[in-house]
Design a protein around this nucleic acid. Sequence first.
DNA 1: CTGAAAGCGCTTACAG
DNA 2: CTGAAAGCGCTTACAG
Lengths: 331, 331
Amino acid sequence: MTTQKIVAKKANVSVATVSRYINDVGYISPEVKGRIKKAIKELNYKPNLVARSLKLRSSKTIALVFPHINNPFFIELVRRAEEVAYHNGYNIILCITENKLDREKLYLDVLKGKLIDGYIIIPVTSEDSRLYEVLEGENVVYVDRSTGLEDEILIKLDNIQGVRLAIEHLLDLNHRKIGVINVPLNITTGYERFEGYKAVLAENGIELQMEYIKYADYPIESAYEKTRQILRLKNKPTAILTMSGLTTLGALKAIKDSGLSIPGDLSIVSFDDFESSELLNPPITAVAQPAAEFGIRAAEILVNLINGRKPRPRRLILEPKLIIRESCQKL
Amino acid sequence: MTTQKIVAKKANVSVATVSRYINDVGYISPEVKGRIKKAIKELNYKPNLVARSLKLRSSKTIALVFPHINNPFFIELVRRAEEVAYHNGYNIILCITENKLDREKLYLDVLKGKLIDGYIIIPVTSEDSRLYEVLEGENVVYVDRSTGLEDEILIKLDNIQGVRLAIEHLLDLNHRKIGVINVPLNITTGYERFEGYKAVLAENGIELQMEYIKYADYPIESAYEKTRQILRLKNKPTAILTMSGLTTLGALKAIKDSGLSIPGDLSIVSFDDFESSELLNPPITAVAQPAAEFGIRAAEILVNLINGRKPRPRRLILEPKLIIRESCQKL
DNA sequence: CTGAAAGCGCTTACAG
DNA sequence: CTGAAAGCGCTTACAG
């Protein structure tokens, strides 16, 4: 492996000067510059970035710690964050926790040793903020779900509003029996969406039916199963709201396998829009999250943070929008 | 930051002994062990993995260099590879080239400096193997597309067979006018699929119609546009074969916007199956790649390679299978 | 069984 | 404008 030392010898200068040349810092006489340039080229020298990291205490890499990447919302986030990172000279380490606490913990431990410059994290749980205290002093942007940490920097959706858009749309179509396949309550997305659901129903004088409320997330089979349970109820809902893209697919399979048709037998709104929503049978009405914005903003805020600029305010709340297609019937 | 030096001082031993303790190498008296353990705990010491990397010339990380991650096939690959990497103690650096040569080159250059242990690469092009010569001496597994490098380690699909499955299915249904939205010819996937297309048509005495052959890949809009072009032909095909999951979605949108119905007006087979294929309108007949196997095998082979075990043979060819649904009509 | 020392390949204050 | 030297935090051959 070619090192600065070898380059220095060949160019007849010291390693210090080679280093200065590489980093374009301080003045170097044109003649010396030429010799170094030539030596680097001839030796095909590439700096050892690990050595540099050790010295500079920065690895020029950002960690993405995500529950899954099957979820289309998360994929778009990864993609956009990677893009912004690339343009700022950072590499991305992708860590998939599978929503498991022990996996997340192991990842964070290892990453701490790798001089990671910053973290973009979708936390596994919102119920134990102490898990994230290990990252104190690090640059971290939490996304989608809150950790409950007092001073976390967070980008999240206005979940209440998202649910409101969906439920009010169904109410406008005269639905009163609205089931929900929520994501788990131990994350703020699930919790807040449940709160929204309760609130909007209450405002409209509709009593909460606990049997209409199910929880599922990943894998897709769990949504399938929970949907089948709802569909077996004697007093079935006339509409359901699914709380993630993957959940929607699971629910759609269940509805299909039950021999029910949408929206004739059952209306459905999907929280999360995705590439194929409009091509499904029928095209699905969806609450769309600004996924691209999530990813871009997360990475931008993190890069700023790394450079010492704190976002103000610390929380960024993004707005969902309703895309009406053909999966809801007027009663 | 706590270092071995600090731990050593607290435990009243040398750093060498602390290092041996951490790495569980050589004999250490139980008493000393106890002191070190205690010191590590009290100081909450975490080893600096960058320093270790520098010394050991291994970063315990694997780079994934991929064109996109929108493509469902690629996502599954990333996911599985990450999973295998995790279980073997490796982190994943994800690099998205967007199928651009300059981006790929920049990534490879940077990664070379990061003491990456191994690479899983879907190369941007199959037409210039010199681009990948920079990785000589590195552990690399190429996936999906060949680089043309004589001694590359490669996992690929039997593309010819995949096309054969699709086309013969259509021929069985009496289609003779079969269009194709292929991926570009400068990658072996596109090239080989085109070869397969030609071969099967020739075997069946069908003349090649150049106007039936279009190229598109990413983004989805290009498939949309090319499909519309095909649909504007006076002598339209009765069926089309799309060569990637994303292409399929683009084509479906185009067909929908043209007011044509599937399979009544046009049959379609998708090369690549994906989560929502069966829920589309209609459910789409697809040539499925064993995406999970791609990801798992790629990572396994790479980990073996890192540990000095070369795969024999160097090329692994995986088989596609046809999943018949409802998107093809008998003529 | 444990320690002193060298070295991995960089960067950077300090001198001159 | 350039160099000698220290140091980032590890690991490991060599001694004892």
